[in-house]
Structures are given as C-alpha cells and as structure tokens.
C-alpha cells in the first residue's frame, strides 16, 4: 500500500464536563487512536453509540481540535497549516453527514450551496460545475434552483455528497451517510459512494454502526468501543472471521437474512458503560464473556494477529481466536 494520505497518531479527545457551577465528568470520546488512510483507500469505522467514531471523523478533518496526538496530511501535521494554506487544505478534506434534513441550509437554493465550495476557493465559473456535480450524483441541472425541502431523504444525501465534491477533495469522511435512509435508498447511496471512490480515486473514512455495509464498501475496517480500537484489519476477513470478542458479539447481534449464516448468538450482558466513566483496563471487559482478572489490570495493546494484517486489542486473542 502506498504512503498514507492522512494519518492520525495517538489521537485523543476529551470533552470537558458541562455546567457552570458543578462540572459533570469529562467524557473521553476518543482515546489514543492510530489511523491511516492511503490515497483511494476506504477505511471503515464501526461502533455503537458512544464509541467515539463520529468524533474521530471530526478530528481527522481538523474541524475540532484534538486533546492529544496529531493528524498529518502528506506527512505534515494539521497544526502546520495556517492562513491561506489552511484554506487550501480545507478543499482537500470534506465531509458527508448522517442527517439528510439538518445537513442542508433550509433557506438557500441547493445550487448556491453546492457553488459555495467552488466560489470560496476561486475554482472558476460555478454554474457549469454545479450542473456537472449534480449529474455526477444522479440529479438534474434543473434541481439547482430548488430548496432542500423539495427533495426526499435520499436526494438530499446526494446533494450533500455533491457539496462535498465541490472542492474536488481527495479525502472524504462519510459520517453514517446511509443510517437515516430506507433500505432501498441506502443501497443507491452506497453504490454512488463506491462509484465515486473508483472514478475519482477518493480516499474515504466511512463511519457506520452497520458492519455488513462497511464490509461491502471498505478495504479496511476499524472496530471501536468506548473510544478505543478493539480490532482492525482487512474488511472482508474481519467481517467473516472476527477475532475480538466485541467484534464477534457485534456481528452476531447484527440481524441477518440468511438463516445459515446466523451463528450461535452471543448476547452481551447489560448496557454499554458511560464514556464518562469507562472501566479500567480493557473497556469491554464488563460485558465480555471471556473476561478474566488480568483484563482489568492494563489496557490491552493493539497487537498483530494472524497473517492477514489484522490487529486485535485483547490479551486472550490467541486463546479464543
């Protein structure tokens, strides 16, 4: 694989507690995560609510300052980019959001919203480019004159993608782009993202709670739980033969059409702990059926496992894998 386009090292984010007089506990959303995305590579981030996956996406884009660690683009840390360089960098890193209703300004025509990215960076005449972008995402030129409320959820998501493409980025964070859509529309949007990646060589961080979708679209996958990486590796193998107890539980909990594929159901105990009060040692140990005393002692290292380029953060990986 070629050198990383964008790389995060030991990335952490802590949100301070809220309240003026009595602070609530700070929330450690992301804790010491390493990610790298090469050109034209799609990396999936999978996790449930509170796993920190969305925060990771925002941090990678520099839309939110990290508490610790660094993000580098082409080997240069984000903090190096200032002034006009920062603005040029913004062209390269874009985002697509989950909520198709909140992600478009309700008071502006969609053509003008897509044109923003072109005008802000002086990338020439907007009109024709907007038409090209709309066509690219499967909409028509005439749609540019309409307001967001005139579109369906799937169409809005296409518009959101067109807006992200307007700066001709080379890295796209897609934050649960299909979660709010119906199944039949979901597949359309996944197909569109796959096409864009192939045609434009777009690198992508695809955030989702749905492991099958990620396996479908991504080369590699990162499984997160309470701000930490549990397992990472090539998407298909992780999907077909998960090693970490959490990945297994997650996959076995995902409802499947094919009865034969449904393996022995692993039911997790209880609810995920609050990110404001994570367990010591391995954060998953409180719900893990394989947990032993040693799991509470130290944070397990994300260590290589097997021969397929996979890494697993579990001290018992060898025993149970």
């Amino acid at each position: 694989m070629s050198a990383a386009l964008i790389e995060a090292k030991n990335l952490s984010k802590t949100f301070p507690g809220k309240g003026m007089f009595r602070k609530s506990r700070p929330v450690q959303a992301v804790r010491g995560i390493d990610v790298s995305v090469a050109r034209a590579e799609a990396v999936g981030v999978v996790g449930e609510s509170g796993s920190g996956k969305s925060t990771l996406g925002r941090l990678m884009l520099g839309l939110m300052p990290a508490t610790a660690g660094s993000v580098t683009v082409d080997g240069r840390p984000l903090s190096d980019f200032t002034g006009s360089e920062w603005r040029r960098l913004r062209q390269r890193l874009q985002i697509v959001f989950q909520d198709p209703y909140g992600s478009l300004d309700p008071r502006r025509r969609i053509g003008s919203q897509i044109a923003d990215g072109i005008r802000l960076h002086g990338r020439g005449e907007a009109g024709e480019q907007v038409t090209a972008l709309l066509n690219r995402v499967g909409l028509e030129a005439a749609h540019a004159q309409r307001f967001p409320h005139e579109f369906s959820g799937g169409q809005r998501q296409r518009i959101g993608i067109a807006r992200a493409l307007s700066t001709a980025p080379d890295f796209l964070v897609a934050d649960e782009p299909v979660s709010a859509l119906d199944v039949s529309i979901q597949a359309q949007v996944i197909q569109l993202l796959a096409d864009l990646r192939r045609d434009l060589g777009l690198a992508m961080l695809f955030i989702s709670h749905d492991l099958p979708v990620v396996a479908q679209l991504c080369d590699r996958v990162i499984v997160m739980y309470l701000g930490r990486v549990m397992e990472e590796g090539p998407a298909r193998p992780v999907f077909h033969r998960p090693v970490h107890p959490y990945t297994r539980a997650l996959l076995s909990a995902t409802p499947r059409l094919d009865a034969a594929r449904r393996k022995e159901r692993i039911l997790l105990k209880g609810d995920p702990p609050s990110p404001a009060d994570p367990p010591s040692g391995c954060v998953f140990r409180t719900r893990c059926q394989h947990a032993v005393e040693a799991c509470a002692q130290a944070v397990p290292e994300l260590a290589p496992f097997g021969g397929d380029g996979r890494r697993v953060a579990c001290i018992r990986a060898a025993e149970i894998g």
Binding site: V183, S184, I185, Q186, A187, Q188, V189, I190, Q191, A194, D210, P212, V213, A215, Q216, F239, H240, R256, L257, D258, R261
Partner: peptide, 14 residues
C-alpha cells in the same frame, strides 16, 4: 431483499 447488504454481493438499490 436485494438491497440488503449481506456481505459478498453488492446491494442493489431500487
């Protein structure tokens, strides 16, 4: 049914 991502075959939208 064809639109559900199930792993190997890419899902087809309607």
């Amino acid at each position: 049914l064809a639109a559900v991502p199930e792993g190997d075959t890419p899902p087809a939208g309607i």
